[in-house]
Design a protein around this nucleic acid. Structure first.
Lengths: 266, 266
DNA sequence: TAGTGGTCTAGACCACCGT
DNA sequence: CGGTGGTCTAGACCACTAA
């Protein structure tokens, strides 16, 4: 991260929250430019997940703006989950190692959970496969690569008290995950995304999911120990790393007889 | 809404974003108290959905605080969807009549939708029933009333191009909806929540959904024109009005062969 | 006690909307 | 043009953390 001043008329590259009929479309407030600079610092690896970033007053000095302007930029980044503020300590780069944000993307909760907001107890994992393969047309389209390109595929089960609840295929693009092995997956304690972050420099920032109900095939039924034809929740997830880069495609089948997918609408 | 000053030490009744190990738990920043006062004004009906609320400087004068403090309060309310800011015009009470927020709670989109963020075209509606009945134990528990109390039940289909896609039962608590009839439902153009807002003084502010996959029963299969046993997406929704008041319970079955439920994770 | 984020203020100016 | 929300500043003080 370099010290640098900032212009007051540069356009905002981020398409978020744009007025459709803006009189001056090439206008970006200062704090958004600061936000962009901080984001670039995160992408570039100036500060790694879990690390402390410079204080607001420090950043304000570097960028040549007031602390309030930096504050607004950091506010938005914290709201998007890229940064984590801790009063009295400083501002940290978000990480999937954080106890508070573990399983941030898993919305499956047991029906009997007394408090739906409580953290789910971790499930047992069983890895069935971890191999290099070529992207099918579907997978390639989701990941924004060409079909036939190399991807890493993980197949696993999640179990609760010995009962399989989730069966999923995970696809990771490109050569970044070449070194990933079944053994490493087995030995690692903690969320997959924490592993990806620590050892493969890929941090998942946000994700889009598509949900549908499907009837279990014979193979799926066997693995999840349900009857063939049983209704399963199919969850397709596309995860993005910094800069809206598609970094993982996941296809999960959830047994929802004793669990449900929880969502909040605002 | 009365003019009134505000204390600097009153506790924050809202449990949101509380530090678990706060040294001084009975501390609430000024802007949260202002937020509470505005929320109370909304509950009390001082400003109705779609109406303009007083300007920030006006509110600041009334409450005896600076404009920046009011601003922060309004920012949060706008982020929660209770208010809508429009530069140059003012701040408005959110309404389900807004073109931009119609079908805010319906996450079902056609598989072929080129832009997932595009507004779905409105579906045809077919009301099967609208009657007064007694709350079952399940429904009563969800709505926070006693079983046996009077509720209004609506049963309907949503269709796209003549094909049924959603079959749902809607339960509304108490006497507020006594006047609701099948005829009114049939004649009304626009989202249900807009009708509830305009004619029954009930605005849905947020909702929680539980999703699972179920096999279609014979009756469900007939209504949705699918095979018996076909996997359907069961969506249970509990909607809340101002002040976290449960105001609607909904049990919907979605045919997800050509549609999916879309969700974003952050 | 020093340093961090969190709140609050007062004032200036800008972008946008309706008239 | 006046009024609204939106941005930016500078400075004061508070709450919290760690040493």
């Amino acid at each position: 991260m370099h010290d640098m001043m900032v212009s007051r008329t540069a356009p905002d590259p981020a398409p978020e929250a744009q007025s459709p009929a803006s009189s001056n479309p090439s206008f970006s407030p200062l704090y958004r430019q600061i936000k962009g600079l901080i984001t670039r610092g995160l992408q570039h690896g100036d500060w790694k997940p879990g690390e402390l970033i410079p204080s607001e007053s420090d950043l304000a000095r570097r960028f040549g703006v007031s602390q309030g302007t930096v504050r607004k930029a950091v506010d938005e980044l914290a709201a998007e989950g890229l940064l984590l503020r801790r009063q009295g300590r400083g501002t940290f780069v978000s990480t999937h190692h954080e106890e508070r944000v573990k399983f941030r993307f898993l919305r499956l909760v047991p029906d009997v959970a007394e408090d739906a907001r409580a953290l789910p107890q971790p499930m047992e994992r069983q890895f069935l496969e971890c191999k290099r393969t070529r992207a099918s047309q579907d997978v390639a389209r989701m990941l924004g690569i060409r079909s036939g390109e190399s991807v890493t595929q993980i197949r696993r089960l999640l179990l609760l008290a010995g009962n399989p609840v989730v069966y999923e295929d995970i696809y990771l693009p490109g050569p970044a995950f070449r070194a990933l092995t079944a053994e490493r997956l087995e030995s690692y304690r903690g969320p997959l995304y924490a592993l990806f972050e620590s050892e493969f420099s890929t941090r998942m920032v946000r994700a889009e999911e598509k949900l549908r109900a499907v009837n279990a095939t014979e193979q799926e039924a066997r693995l999840l120990r349900v009857k063939e034809g049983e209704a399963l929740l199919l969850v397709e997830r596309l995860s993005f790393s910094y800069g809206e880069l598609p970094a993982e495609y996941r296809r999960g089948l959830y047994d929802t007889r004793h669990h449900h997918y929880r969502n909040e609408l605002n």
